[in-house]
Design a protein around this nucleic acid. Structure first.
Length: 549
RNA sequence: GCCCUUGUAGUUCAAUGGAUAGAACAAGUCCCUCCUAAGGAUUAGAUGUAGGUUCGAUUCCUACCAAGGGUACCA
């Protein structure tokens, strides 16, 4: 589901109306055009491509048409000038007074600036990580943890009430294999070696858990006794939760597969599918007619062993999420799930659910490099690098930013050797340093009895670095709302970088605390606005906003 | 084989179909008497290959090449 864009009047829509009025006066069709901030600041604040779009209809050269439109266009209030440049762009420049009003509005409500309120009164569920408790989280899980947590924060920022959810499979083959692996290590400890399960979990943590079980339950546990399973699951889950907590990722709800067996949801889903005539038996297994849903192959739902594959519980689980009534359901999966979620969605659609509420975010995998060599990750073979280890070495801010600054579609490379070296140069410090600078200026100003307030002389702010900084601040709401549309945290990270750059440039050129009290107060207003915006952005990204560095 | 992602500077990543393809790290050169130099200024350096659509293509389409993932009665 894509949230509806709010229709408040901003300079862009006002300008667009003016352009369309001019176009109609020339008897040309109201085609949609774009108003974009030009890369080159000499071209002003907005560029319209309307003449390029309409050139064919008008049978004129784009440049000539652009001039005609510009001639008859009535410049709306708040705009300072208009120009035409090849190949036919019409450029507009906002007057400084517009930026002054932006500054005032930030200071009037610092913590609200950039909030669209689109999600107010709505609920959302974000499911992420959802790793089965078979071992420690790896660096690969980290990407999903940070992505999911930040997407949730973006939704919260725009007003949604968000549930961060973790789903795990605790009823299938994997967990049985895990328990068997622990039991084998337990027997080893007792000097009664038993064969280690084929494909068993080989990590050292399995031995540690076996030791805990022996210390706690003694050496007389029956084969297949409950602790092998229960203690293992709890121990590993505790580790997963604390690893996530170290990264400031906290789920508010955990759902598990077993509960859907216990409450009959899985049987119910199966019988509902059967009544839709989507189920048949063959080769001793139970099949779902995914061919009827547009696939070129049917899918096994229940193996001939009588055990369902993960798909059936997945369907029951998603159904449960729908029944809980969320306005938006976000599923975050790794690239390995790209082929399976359409099955779940099409089944739910067949069962009458509005799958338009679902946003599926697929992220590509992290390729780990060590010494230039690719490290293949496998929990079972225990040649992973744990997320805990990484967080302990680099810190939560660096790890979070590393994952946020890349788009989820990038197949990103993570060089373990460079990670530590580069952590000191992580761009997150650039943002945090900008924030610390604002804080320090305010402290310094206080020593001179200068306090930022709402009463200042806006006209004193006329240096290019000041106007440019205000310009960046004015773009924040648009950009942060587009992050809500795309659910790409990277957009906010990038935006904060440009704000920080504009501020650093301002800082080097414009001394804030000076003998000129009027100027100082005006600049302090900018500084406190920047501080608020950076703090808001860092908060969304789950990063600290230090006052000193 | 078929399906999904992705190929951009030496490296890691950006770029709603728009103007001169941005940034960081690495390399070179400058700037602290001044609110923190974790900063600023500046030089050099890139769109896998071949076509197509378009006024305009890194972006859309086709083929090829390369990487990752899927194509399991694993999750």
């Amino acid at each position: 589901m894509r949230p509806r864009r709010n229709l408040r009047m901003n300079p862009r829509t006002i300008l667009n109306d003016a352009i369309l009025t001019a176009v109609e006066a020339l008897d040309l069709p109201r085609k949609s055009s774009q108003l974009t901030p030009p890369k080159n600041p000499e071209f002003g604040d907005f560029a319209s491509n309307i003449a390029l779009v309409l050139a064919k209809d008008a049978r004129q050269k784009p440049l000539d048409l652009a001039r005609r439109i510009a001639d008859i266009l009535v410049l709306p209030e708040g705009f300072a000038q208009v120009s035409v440049t090849p190949p036919g762009f019409i450029n507009f420049k906002l007057s400084n007074s517009y930026y002054y009003s932006v500054l005032k509005s930030i200071l009037a409500n610092p913590h609200e600036y950039g909030k669209s309120r689109i999600g107010i009164g709505k609920t959302a569920n974000v499911e992420f990580v959802s790793a089965n408790p078979t071992g420690p989280l790896t660096v690969g899980h980290g990407r999903q943890a940070i992505l999911g947590d930040t997407v949730a924060s973006i939704l919260e920022w725009h007003g949604y009430e968000v549930t961060r959810e973790y789903y795990y499979n605790d009823a299938g083959r994997q967990m049985r294999l895990l328990a068997n692996s622990v039991e084998a290590r337990y027997r080893e400890l007792l000097g009664e070696p038993s064969p280690f399960p084929e494909d068993g979990y080989q990590g050292d943590y399995i031995r540690d858990i076996a030791r805990v079980i022996r210390d706690e339950y003694g050496d007389s546990l029956e084969p297949g006794a409950a602790p092998f399973r229960k203690v293992t699951e709890k121990t590993i889950f505790d580790d997963i939760k604390s690893t996530l907590q170290d990264l400031r990722v906290v789920h508010s709800r955990f759902s598990n597969e077993q509960s859907f067996y216990d409450n009959g949801a899985i049987d119910q889903t199966l019988s509902d599918l059967r009544s839709k005539d989507l189920i048949y038996e063959a080769d001793g297994a139970t099949w779902l007619k995914t061919t009827a849903l547009g696939k070129n192959q049917d899918t096994v739902l229940i193996k001939k062993t009588g055990e369902p594959t993960y798909r059936l519980p997945d369907m029951a689980y998603h159904r449960d999420k729908f029944d809980r009534g969320y306005d938006m359901i976000v599923d975050i999966f790794g690239a390995d799930h790209i082929a399976t979620y359409p099955d779940v969605l099409s089944v739910l659609k067949t069962l009458g659910y509005d799958t338009g509420k679902v946003r599926v975010l697929i992220h590509q995998f992290v390729t780990l490099l060590r010494g230039g060599e690719i490290v293949k990750m496998s929990t079972r073979k225990a040649n992973y690098v744990t997320l805990r280890e990484l967080t302990e070495r680099l810190g939560a801010d660096v790890v979070r930013y590393f994952f946020i600054m890349r788009g989820m579609n990038s197949h990103l490379n993570f060089d373990l050797d460079l990670a530590e070296d580069q952590s000191e140069k992580n761009p997150v410090f650039y943002l945090q340093y900008a924030h610390a600078r604002t804080a320090n200026i305010l402290v310094h100003a206080r020593a001179f009895d200068l306090e930022p307030g709402s009463d200042f002389t806006t006209q004193r702010l006329d240096r290019p670095e000041e106007i440019n900084l205000l310009k960046e601040l004015s773009r924040v709401p648009v950009v942060w709302e587009s992050a809500l549309d795309s659910l790409e945290p990277q957009i906010i990270a990038q935006n904060l970088q440009t704000v920080a750059t504009a501020f650093h440039k301002f800082y080097t050129v414009c001394r804030v605390v000076t003998d000129d009290q009027e100027l100082s107060l005006a600049r302090l207003a900018i500084v406190s606005a920047v501080k608020a915006v950076l703090k808001n952005g860092l908060e969304i990204l789950g990063l600290t906003a230090p006052d000193r560095m």
